[in-house]
Design a binder for these strands. Sequence first.
RNA 1: GGCCCCAUAGUUCAAUGGAUAGAAUAGGAGUUUCCUAAACUCUAGAUCCAGGUUCGAUUCCUGGUGGGGCUACCA
Length: 592
Amino acid sequence: MYQDPLQSRLTPALVEAFQVLFEASVDPERIAFQATRPEFEGDLTVNVFPFLKVSGRGPEQTAQALGEHLQEHVSEVERFNVIKGFLNLVIADAYWIEYARQALERDILAFPATGSKVMVEYASPNTNKPLHLGHLRNIFLGYSVSRILEAAGHEVVKVQVINDRGIHICKSMLAWQRFGKGETPESSGIKGDKLVGKYYVEFDKALKAEVEDLVAKGSDREKAEKEAPILLAAQDMLRKWEAGDPEVKALWEKMNGWVYFGFEATYRRAGVDFDRNYFESETYVLGKQDVLEGLKKGVFYEKDGAVWVDNTAEGLDEKVLLRSDGTSVYMTQDIGTAIKRFEEYPGLSQLIYTVGNEQDYHFKVLFIILKKLGFPWADGLHHLSYGMVDLPSGKMKSREGTVVDADDLIDEVVQEARRTGEQLSKLDAFSTDEKDELFEMIGLAALKYYLLKVDPKKRMLFDPAASIDLQGHTGPFIQYTYARIQSVLRKAGSWTAQPLNVPLVAEELLVLKQLHQLPSALHEAAAKLDPSAIANQTYELVKAYNTMYQVLPIAKEEDTARRVFRLGLSKAVADAVRKAMWCLGIEVPERM
RNA sequence: GGCCCCAUAGUUCAAUGGAUAGAAUAGGAGUUUCCUAAACUCUAGAUCCAGGUUCGAUUCCUGGUGGGGCUACCA
């Protein structure tokens, strides 16, 4: 379990106290600290209820005895008070002042290198449609987790899977061939992924028309939906693709090229990148051999000519891995791709799949299979499962046209940032380019923070109005605080940090306590693959800072020692905020 | 049908089994001759229901209600 410096100082002292006072040995893991509630005096609280059996005394007596021991033996503990079973410890100012000094000198959000290498997969788009809001949660989440793991000392490999083959892209290709009249992104001015998406919709329209036509002619609807000529033509195209037909391949390459170019533009604007792209067209053949070997080893079994895995002992079902005609299913290629990745990147300790929770079952099965196949790395597989994004109007459904397009959404948040920014008219000194850059930064911060402040596991509601909010618990609020500090530091001119030897005032202490919590939040975020931990603690920190800023003079403080201390604290907060936001994939401006 | 996830102020989100359940937003009241008011202060407002475990349950267990997802020799 991770402990901050204070806790790792106090824990052994408490263990010792139990030994000395009660002749009892307690498991250090069981000693839990919590921040003292603001209505009581103290900084850190130890709850002694769990140890009453060990101490053989009442809660007050136990806490009192422990408190006395700590006060005597731990220099950081200045005094304490006991309320019921709660031992509230007052930590000496010297500790906090020393922490402020350290935070000014080093990056408190950089953990020592662990030597372990982690692969994070965080996008797996199909190439027949542009990216939407759901992809954005996926992308921002995965990117942030990559950065958090990096800050936590791991080496990270960021990858995406591009589903570039299959019936979906053939549908777009066929519709373009029939109705496109040679339209290209250049000729139409339409972004490549949007153009291909347009023909996917065209296909769907044509298919519906054909089905209606067939039904009107007396055909059964279900049958018509399976046998509409345009659908058969698309299936035929897929077969030609698999057979390597040069004409089909050329068209496929051309249209996928448009899509990649479009995706790249969106990724660039969103500020994310990948170290390696996996294309389904290259990986879909993988896995078959591995399944056959598994069959030989008796891990799988054959039934009606198909290869199955039996996971009933694990509480799951049986699942086909190879059809009776020998062809693969999704699971097959995922098995093969995982194996390939561990071959390509020897020594990977973890492979994290950032994929929506509708695939929970799929990954449970995948991981069990790889374990059954005996791969030692199978324990390092992890599904970072995130919840769906709902709209106020309900679920996003591409069929009903209720999806929120990623590019449009980014445009909107940036526009909103512009509207507010122009209104506040604080930016007169900015050039047009500088303004553009700033509004882009603010808009994206609003969007990213909105999506990242929520526990990834949970389904969330995307309220467009709230997502472009720039006030309150938002990314722009954090950016604003950062810019504010930079402004103070600029105005302060040059100064030299020096230790403070007068008591801290309440507002300074609150800021320091929140700053002190930030590394723990990073650790939690890394352990749980949950950016919301660091997002929320960063918010707590800037809130405390703003309160201090409001009530205490900083650059204008007349007492020099206090002045440089507050400047130092301000800079330490700004540095930590910048790094914390970096962990979320969010940039911070020097002015706003 | 089977399996999985979720339920907290009007709304959107927090809360390692611990003290009087925190924020934001919307509502009400204030703060600017002073370092950026995208800020700050005050105010009102919530654990789906019923059992159980525990010194102590929003948290764990069982049942119920409501919502969502998965459950093809489709991709």
